[in-house]
Amino acid sequence: MDQTSTPLVDMKNISIAFGGIRAVDDASVDLHAGEVVALLGHNGAGKSTLIKILSGAYKRDGGSIFVNGEEVSIGNPRDAKKYGIETIYQTLALADNVDAAANLFLGRELRTAWGTLDDVAMEAEARNVMGRLNPRFQRFKEPVSKLSGGQRQSVAIARAILFNARILIMDEPTAALGPQETAQVGELVKQLKADGIGIFLISHDIHDVFDLADRVCVMKNGQVVGTARTQDVTKDEVLGMIILGKCPPGAIPGPGAMAIAA
């Protein structure tokens, strides 16, 4: 990875507080094209909140975001999508009462020459993309509330890759998936990476992370403990970062690193 080129995304000194809780505190992280950066940390560390700032779901209190070296203002999800930022939310964020195709195209519906919804075209496209992720999926006519957790997750993933994302945020994308589907998502990540897409991957599965990620960024209590290339650290060292906030020598320490860290 060429770390000297302009990063695709550069989040600098991001902070946000909910009431008294500083959910993200002076966090900085960057992402290059064709790179997978894993965001790690205990429950409530602030991972989802940090990426929700990038996806436009939350407005940050402080800090700046650069896309391709240019400062951007992301005030809502529409702005983020404009910069090619697509997100798979931890909560999936599906409209449960409409079908898979309607969810895939929500906010970006295909329309006929008369400006009406082109449902058949959307269904065809949905069958196409779902076929890549989950070939056994057939329930296109049903509201997604009737789907299994894994099927719903597949819909959420399909939605994110449907619109030529340049930056993909995956917040625990495989939490509800079976082994085969998880492997499929792993393949998908590799393929997207090869296409030059930058990916933020949040996961609690450290093995997954070491298989897929180029770098890891560990958060604790809203702060970044450290960032490291996966080949420079061991799994145990990363676990130490997550649990104790101890930054190993192979990593670049952040503001959240334990004071005694080298």
């Binding site: 964020a93 599906l94 409209a95």
Partner: peptide, 15 residues
């Protein structure tokens, strides 16, 4: 209908 099903999801979808 999307807003009725999940207002937050509708907002996140850019509506």
């Amino acid at each position: 209908f999307a807003i009725g099903g999940n207002p937050e999801a509708a907002e996140l979808a850019g509506i």
